[in-house]
Nucleic acid binder design. Structure first.
Lengths: 211, 211
DNA sequence: TATATATATGAACACTTATTCTTATATATA
DNA sequence: TATATATAAGAATAAGTGTTCATATATATA
């Protein structure tokens, strides 16, 4: 989002918040205007129409932290870190769930997933496929180095990714009712511990392999 | 749902379909009426208002197959089956994703999750908590019988449940765009295979334990 | 068959919706 | 300072919304 005027940015952010809370369809232009503190007609000086706000939000999803679990690091450089890279990714999910800005984006995405084809394409390509593919490369390399047991890397990537997504959804859902997220939050780490412990090759096993 | 008149049932089902497809708010009473083939005013002979249709749908979720993964079987009776009970539950998720009726309920639930507090309560208590607790009882008993490795049963239950949920969401999402679900569908079984293979105690390990 | 009840219609209602004007006021540019 | 441009307000509009009403027609009951 480059150099928005103050008001345009305010409209954008108020709209995102409302879309995430009650959905695009249920949010009125009047509500957005009221949240910004202007007349509804003033909105049309900044956006062509209501849908243009929605489109711009979806456009900007690609630049958000919602999808950059790897922070643009090359899988080839990080696989050596073993468990700690999984811990890091797991922690990224946790941070997204709690960061007030990314949290909105995630809730918005889940809210509108079935109502917007562009959003589904984003979800599939940027949020899911991209990350799972990177993960599977990491796992593939770990297998080659005999850090972890050998199996289908793509399956493994899905198995690592899906609980993180689910726990994230849990937290966003609990927050919607102002319920405690403490228990759900611990599951991020427990998932990584459980997962790594089950796939890693320890020294004894390694010796067995070489015998 | 007891003895609805023909028309009431038609309204109910047309509404569920539309709610699941485009959301409650975006669905108009006129659309529901058109789908049934009656005037919009006739709907009010069967339901007090639009929201009453929504409420009735949510009421009936508890009777649906959406949540009865165990088909009312006692965890104490089924844990002995070991992997096959997990296969069975995994397959239930898969069936739900493809059954045209339950598939609608799941999509409806995900559509309206953030817009309806009663639905979130249902999701949390009936869909999530109830099943995960039953699962953890099953795992706890498997641990006592030294069928699987010993760890926190509730964590294990979450680890088994969450990928199934995720894959189900994947399939419903892919179906929304008429995309192929073949690859996603294989993940249900692969999840169970991977999961069981990692937690089970095989004979060699068992011998080690007794030494 | 006659009567009561349930269900259908079609028109109308009051309200909300997104959007568009015209007009006024800032803000930036010359 | 004068002028052009961007942004604000307020009123108005047309279309869409859920809902109600009086009335007609089936359907079930006596």
């Amino acid at each position: 989002m480059n150099k928005l005027s103050g008001t345009k940015k305010k409209i954008y952010e108020a709209a995102l918040k409302l879309f995430a809370q009650k959905g695009y369809k249920a949010t009125t232009v009047r509500e957005i205007a009221r949240a910004v503190g202007i007349q509804q007609s003033a909105i049309y000086n900044h956006f062509k129409n209501k849908e243009a706000i929605l489109d711009e939000i979806i456009d900007n999803l690609s630049n958000s932290h919602l999808i950059n679990l790897f922070e643009d690091k090359d899988p080839k450089d990080i696989y050596k870190k073993g468990k700690s890279i999984l811990k890091h990714i797991s922690n990224m999910f946790k941070l997204i769930s709690y960061d007030t800005k990314t949290d909105l984006l995630f809730r918005f995405m889940m809210q509108e997933l079935f109502n917007n084809e562009r959003l589904r394409i984003f979800y599939n390509e940027e949020f899911y496929q991209k990350n799972v593919k990177k993960l599977s490369i990491v796992f593939f390399m770990m297998m080659q180095e005999e850090m972890i047991a050998s199996m289908d890397p793509l399956v493994l990537a899905n198995e690592f990714f899906s609980p993180l997504f689910f726990y994230q959804l849990q937290i966003v859902r609990l927050k919607a009712d102002n319920k405690s997220t403490a228990v759900a939050a611990t599951l991020f780490e427990k998932h990584t511990d459980f997962f790594w412990d089950r796939i890693r090759i320890n020294n004894e096993r390694k010796e067995q392999l070489f015998n």
